[in-house]
């Protein structure tokens, strides 16, 4: 097993664990953490490819992904705090009025 296979496999595993957590957990905060796990898995793959191809382009993409993840986490956490203040719950099952 080469180094590249190990690292890309780790990224794949993190992304899959993120999918499972995002779909199965009811708490909105845990769903958000699973989303961060998925972004992290993508970053791991990008860094492995950057090393493999000896190119800085994936690293630039990693920078942009980290920025987007930071913005998303800050906004979503503020949203959950507002929802919690309004009705005392961050369970995604409690906010189903958009479902029709």
């Amino acid at each position: 097993m080469s180094e590249l296979t190990l690292i890309v496999g780790l990224g794949l595993c993190l992304f899959s664990i993120g999918i499972v957590g995002f779909v199965t957990r009811r708490s909105g905060l845990i769903a958000l953490m699973s989303l961060e796990l998925m972004l992290n898995g993508v970053n791991i793959c990008l860094v492995a490819f950057a090393r493999h191809h000896n190119s800085p382009e994936p690293s630039a993409l990693v920078m942009l992904i980290v920025l987007v993840a930071a913005a998303e986490a800050a906004l979503a956490l503020a949203l959950f705090v507002a929802l919690f203040r309004q009705s005392g719950s961050v369970d995604l099952d409690d906010y189903r009025m958009l479902k029709g």
Partner: peptide, 17 residues
């Protein structure tokens, strides 16, 4: 939901691998 989530994650992993 749990069955669906685990199936989705596992099938994603297998397909990508």
């Amino acid at each position: 939901t749990i069955v669906l989530g685990v199936t989705a994650g596992a099938s994603f992993f297998v397909l990508c691998a």
